[in-house]
Design a protein around this nucleic acid. Structure first.
Lengths: 125, 125
DNA sequence: TCCTTATCAGTAACGATTACTATTTGTTTT
DNA sequence: AAAACAAATAGTAATCGTTACTGATAAGGA
C-alpha cells in the first residue's frame, strides 16, 4: 500500500469534516487541491479506507453512500428525507421512547438486523 | 385509475407470496402469465400500489427495493448479507438484548431515524 | 538512478430504476 | 354497439451512483 497525495488528501478531507460526506462531495472538495483527480480514484480510495477501518462507510436506503471520520463513541443516525443530510444521534433509546424530545422532526424509526440467514449458514446458497 | 390485467396480476403475485419480492422477481413471475409484460410496467405498478398503501415497499441499503403484502402486525426486518433475502422479525426488543437467541446469525443491528431536519423545517433548503 | 508494480486519470460499463413515446385498451358517451 | 377520449402499456432510451478497464504515471525498494 503506497502513500499517494490523492490518498492523503481524501483522508484529510474526511477526517477534518464534521459532516457525513458523499463521494461526490469529497470529489468536489478534492478538486480544489488536485484539479484533475478522478472520480473513480475518489471512490476507490474511500472504499479502501473504509475497508481498512480508517474511515466509516454509511450506506443509506437512498442509494447514496456517505463517509465519515472514525468516531470512538457508538451512535446512530438521523437522515433528513428532504435534504439527505445525515446527523449523529447519541441518545437512541431515549428518542425511541419519546420522539418529541428530539431536535429533529422524527417521522420514522427503522430497526434492521443483518447477518447470515440459516440457509446460508448451512451452505445452501 | 383503471383496472388492467397487469395490475391485477402483480397485486395477486405480491399478496400470495410469503417472501419479500424484488421487482425482478415479480417480473419473472408475471411473465409466466403475461409473456410480454414490460419491466417498466412492473416497476410502475409496484410503485403505484405502494404509494396507495395496497402493498409495502421495503427499501434496503443494498439498493434493491423489495415489495411485500400488507401485514397488520408491526415488525422489523432481518436482511441476509449473503443472499439478500429479507425475513420478518417480530421480537426486535428481545433480539436487541440477546442476539444469540435468534434463528439467524445477527452481526449487526442498525437503528436509523428519519424525518425532517431543523434546517429544512425552517425552509432553508 | 533504475525497475517493478501499485496507483492513477480518463473513460466505458454496470445494475436498478425512471422517463419517454407510439400504440393499445379500459371506460364513458353517444 | 360504435365512437371517442384518455389512462395504461410495451419497448426502449436515459439516468444515477458506482465499479471495471486500460494505458500512463509515480512511489519506493534495490
Amino acid at each position: 500500500m503506497r502513500n499517494t497525495k490523492q490518498k492523503e488528501l481524501i483522508f484529510k478531507i474526511i477526517s477534518s469534516s464534521y459532516n457525513h460526506l458523499t463521494a461526490q462531495e469529497v470529489y468536489t472538495e478534492a478538486r480544489k487541491e488536485i484539479d484533475n483527480i478522478s472520480l473513480g480514484t475518489v471512490y476507490r480510495i474511500l472504499n479502501n479506507l473504509a475497508d481498512n477501518h480508517q474511515i466509516v462507510r454509511i450506506k443509506t436506503k437512498s442509494g447514496v453512500d456517505h463517509y465519515d471520520r472514525k468516531e470512538q463513541e457508538k451512535h446512530n443516525h438521523f437522515i433528513c428525507d428532504n435534504c439527505g443530510k445525515i446527523f449523529d444521534v447519541y441518545n437512541a433509546e431515549y428518542l425511541y421512547d419519546d420522539k418529541e424530545l428530539s431536535d429533529f422532526q422524527i417521522n420514522n424509526v427503522d430497526i434492521t438486523f443483518s447477518g447470515i440467514c440459516n440457509e446460508c449458514i448451512k451452505g445452501r446458497n
